[in-house]
Amino acid sequence: MSVTRSVALFAVAALFEIGGAWLVWQGVREHRGWLWIGAGVLALGAYGFAATFQPDANFGRILAAYGGVFVAGSLAWGMVADGFRPDRYDVTGALICLAGMAVIMYAPRG
């Protein structure tokens, strides 16, 4: 499996997880109702499946690497969906997390 496909799978997982959590947030905190909450729960369930298509068989490694994608993706989601403006520390932290993800996931192994 190529790095490109793996990165795409991480992006899909982020879309489902962050989107699902946002839908639940909207349903509860913004009083949008059970339909939003239900859609969020379904999206979160889909996230659980997306990670299983990664090439590495080690759950811990996949989930740890995904953490970097989650951090950067959450900031991006906030920008698009809520008008959040990250500061330079948010951006720096996200870049550090993505670098960590790349080392965990794509470092050459014997």
Rank of each mutant, 00 (worst) to 15 (best):
F10E: 00
G40T: 05
R5T: 14
A50F: 06
S74D: 07
E17N: 02
R29G: 15
V91N: 02
A51P: 12
V71M: 04
A43V: 08
A65F: 04
F84I: 04
A8H: 15
R61V: 06
Y66H: 04
M1P: 09
R32A: 03
G60R: 00
E30H: 11
L15G: 12
L98S: 03
A57Y: 00
W25I: 10
L63D: 01
I18R: 00
M79Q: 10
G67D: 03
R61G: 03
P108E: 05
W22V: 09
L98I: 05
I62M: 00
A57R: 00
A39H: 07
V71T: 01
T52Y: 03
I96V: 14
R61H: 11
S2D: 05
A99T: 09
L63Y: 06
G60K: 00
F16A: 06
G33C: 02
T92S: 15
M105H: 02
F84L: 07
G45A: 13
R85M: 11
V80F: 02
T92N: 13
G83F: 03
A51I: 12
A102T: 10
I62N: 01
T92W: 14
I37V: 03
T52P: 02
V24Q: 12
L95S: 12
R61Q: 07
A57S: 02
L63A: 03
R29W: 15
A11F: 11
G20Q: 01
M101L: 15
Q54E: 01
A14K: 08
R5W: 14
F70P: 00
L42M: 13
S74G: 15
R88H: 13
A72C: 05
A81H: 07
A21K: 02
E30W: 11
V3K: 13
Q26R: 15
R109V: 08
A13H: 04
G48I: 01
A14Y: 05
